[in-house]
Amino acid sequence: MNKTVLRIEHLTKTYAKTKRAVDDLSLDVCAGDIYGFIGQNGAGKTTTLRAVTGILPFDSGRIEIDGISVQDDPVACKSMIAYIPDNPDLYDYLTGIQYLNYIGDIFGVEKEIRRERIEKYAEMFRIKGDLGSLIGAYSHGMKQKLAIISALLHAPKLMILDEPFVGLDPEAAFKIKQVFREMCENGSAIFFSTHVLDVAEKLCNKIAIIKNGKLIACGDIESVRGNESLEDVFMEVLESHEK
């Protein structure tokens, strides 16, 4: 079995002391996993992802990135991950290349490696010609692509993405799936939320279904799905937990 990159144990997060957004959630993401996290709106997906990245405090439980607790050493954990929110609100006053340089400096990516990766991914996502322009002039899809390139710049061990395919053109969506697979072959892991069950079914080797903050199904996609489509399983699982 591959090494565990992300371990979530009994995570509980309550908003305003009343609304339990995540309730005793536990799961493991191993090196090489492409782990899909699915659920309805307000199920607790984004809250879980934000807690994992260390930007949202939680009430109880434990989150470890490569064996290090997010609560004990958040900086060490953050240096191993990359996070792309659902609506990357990048800095409008910087140009694309200034933003990438900024992220490269923060993560201490060497100049030559930085150059190589920027060239590679900017060409792949066809935004090389726009890197000199202000981010404020970018479309949503271009911002998404820039955020993905910045996330790939330091070759993270764990990539966390919230709805990564929203706003991407079909070619970019195809290429990002390729990049995910490449990363996982090299020992990284991907943990992402999505509403697009078709993408989860084709791309992920593991999935987790969350409802009202509780994990109601998780594991290898084959074992969760069985002989049915993921969509059918998803609807069945949701209905069975409503009773």
């Binding site: 934000r50 260390g54 930007i55 900086v75 953050k78 240096s79 929110p85 990048l90 800095y91 923060i106």
Partner: peptide
Amino acid sequence: GQLFVLPLS
């Protein structure tokens, strides 16, 4: 969130 997620104290 873009700033807080960075590996910085």
